[in-house]
């Protein structure tokens, strides 16, 4: 599980996260939603130890992740970034194998066990047939799956995803989120995924956290958080929330400004 407590972050003198607290249980998908600039990506970067924090802690089973050296942290928490500007010349196989970095010495020699882990990660994201291809030749959806496989190869109990569906078409958005959800359930991973698309959050998250101006405004089941009142106030736009016509989920429909 992942327990974020009272996390505060500043860029220069401007505070962008104000005492954020959030819990993700193992086997649970939590969607982090909120308008642009609310601090979703900042939270992902702070939790993964990329930027310094002013205060607060990020714990898993009592260990403070932010106090660990980056190698130790990368064995507990992996991040799936957006698939933009990936080094195009690496093969898919080389890229996924780099996920084993936290277990390797500085020479990066991989063992047969490391290769088996990377191979299984590729199988999990249904991309084993891409192994020989160069990353630069892949579609956006394929690249995003490769990054997911790289994160899985880190063999961590916690997975963070930073708007992984932003550049994907409809088909890939749905199949990617289904993949993430089944990973959380089958491998018992704690998954925190920042999402722009409220309807993807409604359909694939166990719980939703709404972030506005660097604070968690509301957290709970999709039905508790995706209410017209909370969403309208957060996005400054009237919205209606209706039942999905054929899936067990909600649909958030934006109105006119």
């Amino acid at each position: 599980m992942l327990r974020i407590e009272n996390l505060s972050v500043s860029y220069g003198s401007r505070r962008v996260l104000h005492g954020v607290s959030l819990e993700v249980q193992s086997g649970e998908v939590v969607a982090l939603i909120g308008p642009n600039g609310a601090g979703k990506s900042t939270l992902v970067r702070a939790v993964s130890g990329v930027i310094p924090v002013d205060a607060g802690s990020v714990r898993t089973n009592g260990t403070d992740l932010l106090a660990l050296p980056s190698m130790q942290r990368a064995r507990r928490l992996a991040v799936v970034p957006q698939a933009v500007s990936m080094p195009p010349a690496f093969s898919v196989w080389e890229t996924v194998l780099l996920g084993r970095t936290p277990y390797l010495n500085f020479l990066g020699q991989t063992s047969a066990a490391d290769e088996e882990t990377a191979r299984r990660a590729l199988v999990r994201v249904d991309a084993l047939d891409l192994a020989e291809r160069r990353v630069g030749e892949l579609s956006g959806g394929e690249q995003q799956r490769v990054l997911l496989a790289r994160a899985l190869a880190q063999s961590t109990p916690i997975l963070l995803l930073d708007e992984p569906t932003s550049n994907l078409d409809l088909h890939y958005q749905v199949s990617f989120m289904e993949m993430v959800r089944s990973l959380a359930k089958q491998d018992h991973l704690a998954v925190l995924v920042a999402l722009h698309d409220l309807n993807l959050a409604a359909r694939y998250a166990d719980r939703v956290a709404l972030m506005v101006a660097g604070k968690i405004e509301a957290a709970g089941t999709p039905r508790q958080v995706l209410t017209p009142e909370l969403i309208s106030a957060a996005y400054h736009l009237p919205v209606q929330v209706v039942p999905h016509p054929f899936a067990d989920a909600l649909l958030v429909l934006p109105g006119n400004k």
């Binding site: 970067r45 993964s48 130890g49 990329v50 050296p69 980056s70 190698m71 130790q72 942290r73 990368a74 064995r75 928490l77 992996a78 991040v79 970034p81 780099l98 996920g99 970095t101 936290p102 790289r150 880190q154």
Partner: peptide, 9 residues
Amino acid sequence: DQARQMGLP
């Protein structure tokens, strides 16, 4: 960012 997240100092 990603290099740190993959555990490289």
